[in-house]
Structures are given as structure tokens and as C-alpha cells.
């Protein structure tokens, strides 16, 4: 299909979104990520029954924490799609990229830069 999607996205493969712990998400931001999104199977279509539903809960947890500490919960999202749906994968990547550009960089990076200056 040779679909295009933003090149600034680093894909981390996991066997199931159910493997994604809230700590993975938080640590990504600690290390400077501007946004994190999870792409799971369609709800009801998890091969491990409820992995993607657990992932959604963790996304909610991470969003709450990031809002509380002033990083912005909107930087974390959960998407669901069918594994064969390449165009939708590209569309979500673009959507996420736009959303994060709108929000600007991870404020921790800005704070560090400011301090260094």
C-alpha cells in the first residue's frame, strides 16, 4: 500500500496492548516523549480477551496523572483498529501527530532548556 505516516513516531511493538503498563507510558514522558498513543485491536477482538480494555484503563490512569502534574493528559491516547487496516493506522498517526504539534513539546523539555539557558 506504501502509505505515508509521520516519521517522528517511534513504534514500540508489544504482543498485546494489555502488556502496556501505566509505567511504560509515564516513563516515556519522563524520557522526553511529547505524546504516546496505543494502537490496540478492536474492542471485543482481543486475542487475549481483554488486553485492549485493560490498556484503555491504563491510558485513562496515565491521562489523569499527567493532567495532575501539568504535563497534559491529552498527550496520551488509545486507538483501536483491525490489524489489516493500514489506512486507518496511517490516519491515526497523522491525527496524533497533529494533536501533539498543536499542544507543543513535552513541557519537561522546555523546563530543562529554560534552566540550562
Amino acid at each position: 500500500m506504501r502509505l505515508q505516516y509521520p516519521t517522528n513516531i517511534k513504534v514500540v511493538r508489544v504482543p498485546c496492548t494489555g502488556k502496556v503498563d501505566v509505567l511504560y507510558i509515564l516513563h516515556s514522558f519522563e524520557k522526553g516523549a511529547d505524546g504516546v498513543y496505543l494502537v490496540g485491536c478492536l474492542e471485543g477482538g482481543c486475542h487475549y480477551n481483554s488486553g485492549n480494555l485493560k490498556a484503555r484503563k491504563r491510558v485513562e490512569q496515565a491521562r489523569k496523572i499527567l493532567d495532575t502534574i501539568g504535563i497534559g493528559g491529552e498527550r496520551v491516547r488509545m486507538y483501536n483498529l483491525s490489524s489489516s487496516d493500514g489506512p486507518l493506522f496511517a490516519k491515526y498517526a497523522t491525527e496524533m501527530d497533529e494533536k501533539i504539534r498543536e499542544m507543543g513539546p513535552n513541557p519537561i523539555k522546555l523546563a530543562k532548556k529554560k534552566k540550562a539557558a
Binding site: L23, L26, E30, I65, L66, I71, I108, K112
Partner: peptide, 12 residues
């Protein structure tokens, strides 16, 4: 989770 959140808070 708490440690990570606090680290980010103070860094910010």
C-alpha cells in the same frame, strides 16, 4: 507510578 509522576512534576 508515584515516583515517576513526582519526578516529572518537579522537572516541569
Amino acid at each position: 507510578v508515584l515516583a515517576s509522576a513526582l519526578r516529572m512534576y518537579f522537572q516541569n
